[in-house]
C-alpha cells in the first residue's frame, strides 16, 4: 500500500518536471501551429551548456543557467529568423523538416564535441530526502523540480495572459494578418515566442541534467515526453501541460510499480498513443484560452 502511495507521490512530483519539458512545445504549437521537433534536442543542448558552465567555467549552477538561457535565446532567435521564418508561410511540412534538420545538427554536434557518454549535473538535493519516514520518502531534487515546474508554467501563463507582450503574442496567434495591420511584425513575434519556449527548455535542461543522466541522443526521448504532455493536456493550453505532466508521471510510475521499471517509458508512450487515438485534442481540451 505504501509503495503505491510512494509511486503516486513520485509520479506527481515527476509530473512537475514533465510540465516544464512540455510547456515550451505547447506555446510554440499554440502560437505558430508549429510542432517543434527540435524541442528535445534544444533541451539537451541546454543541459550540456549548463553542465559546461556550472562545472568548468563559473562554478555556480544559477549563474550557469543564466548564461545558458542567454545563449539559447540568441540561438533560438537566429533559428527562427533565418530558418523557420523563411518557410513558415509554405505550410507545416517545410517548417517541420527544417526543425528536424536543426535537431539532427544539434544532436550530432553534441556527439562530436562531448562524445556519446552519459553526463549529469551534480545536484546536492538529489540525494537528500525532504521527508524520510520508514514507508514514504520524498526526494529533495524531485520536490524542487516540481516547484520549479509549477512556477515556470505559472510565470509563462502570467506573461501570456497579463502582459502587453503576451497580448501581442496572443493577437498574432489569433489573427496574423489582423496583427500585422496594426503594425505587429508577426515574424518577429514568432521569433520571440520561440525564445520564450527555449527559455523554458533551458530550465528544463538544467532540471533534467540534475535528475537523470543525459547524452546527446536523449533529445528525442524528451521531445516525445514533451509531445505527450502537450497531447494529454491539450495542444496549446499552457495550464493543461501541468495536468498532462502529472498524468504522464502517474502513468509511468504506476506502470513501473505494476509491470517493472523497464516498462515505465513504454507505458507512457502507449498512454500517449491511446490519447492521440481517442482524443487527439487532449483530455481536457476546451475552447482555447
Amino acid at each position: 500500500m505504501y509503495i503505491i502511495i510512494q509511486s503516486v507521490i513520485t509520479g506527481i512530483l515527476l509530473g512537475g518536471l514533465y510540465a516544464v519539458i512540455g510547456v515550451g512545445m505547447s506555446l510554440v504549437f499554440g502560437i505558430m501551429r508549429l510542432t517543434n521537433i527540435a524541442h528535445g534536442d534544444l533541451m539537451i543542448l541546454a543541459s550540456y551548456f549548463t553542465m559546461l558552465f556550472a562545472m568548468e567555467i563559473v562554478g555556480n549552477v544559477f549563474l550557469a543557467l543564466l548564461i545558458t538561457i542567454v545563449l539559447m535565446l540568441i540561438l533560438s532567435f537566429l533559428i527562427q529568423t533565418f530558418l523557420v521564418n523563411r518557410v513558415i508561410d509554405k505550410g507545416p511540412e517545410p517548417s517541420l523538416l527544417v526543425m528536424f534538420g536543426v535537431s539532427i545538427i544539434i544532436r550530432n554536434a553534441l556527439i562530436l564535441i562531448f562524445g556519446a557518454n552519459n553526463r549529469t549535473i551534480p545536484n546536492p538535493l538529489s540525494t537528500t530526502n525532504i521527508l524520510n519516514s520508514p514507508n514514504i520518502s520524498i526526494s529533495g531534487g524531485y520536490l524542487v523540480n516540481f516547484i520549479v515546474g509549477v512556477a515556470v508554467v505559472l510565470v509563462l501563463m502570467f506573461i501570456i495572459q497579463k502582459t502587453y507582450f503576451g497580448m501581442s503574442i496572443r493577437a498574432t496567434a489569433s489573427n496574423r494578418m489582423g496583427a500585422e495591420l496594426l503594425g505587429v511584425n508577426t515574424k518577429r513575434i514568432f521569433a520571440y515566442t520561440l525564445c520564450l519556449a527555449v527559455a523554458t527548455a533551458s530550465i528544463a535542461g538544467l532540471l533534467i541534467g540534475q535528475t537523470f543522466v543525459f547524452y546527446p541522443s536523449t533529445g528525442p526521448q524528451y521531445l516525445i515526453t514533451a509531445f505527450g504532455v502537450v497531447v494529454i493536456g491539450g495542444m496549446g493550453s499552457l495550464g493543461g501541460t501541468l495536468v498532462g505532466g502529472i498524468l504522464l508521471g502517474l502513468v509511468q510510475l504506476l506502470s513501473a510499480h505494476f509491470f517493472g521499471t523497464g516498462w515505465q517509458t513504454i507505458a507512457g508512450y502507449v498512454f500517449m498513443l491511446v490519447i492521440l487515438t481517442i482524443r487527439p485534442q487532449g483530455i481536457f481540451a476546451k475552447a482555447r484560452r
Binding site: 510542432t35 528525442p220 513504454i266 508512450y269 498513443l273 492521440l276 487515438t277
Partner: peptide, 24 residues
C-alpha cells in the same frame, strides 16, 4: 489503427513515438 487517426504533424510524431516504443 492508432496513427491513421492522426493527421499532419501528429502523424509525424505519432509514427516516431511508435518507433521509439518499439525500440524500448
Amino acid at each position: 489503427l492508432p496513427i491513421f487517426k492522426m493527421s499532419g504533424d501528429f502523424f509525424t510524431i505519432g509514427s516516431w513515438i511508435v518507433a521509439e516504443a518499439m525500440l524500448l
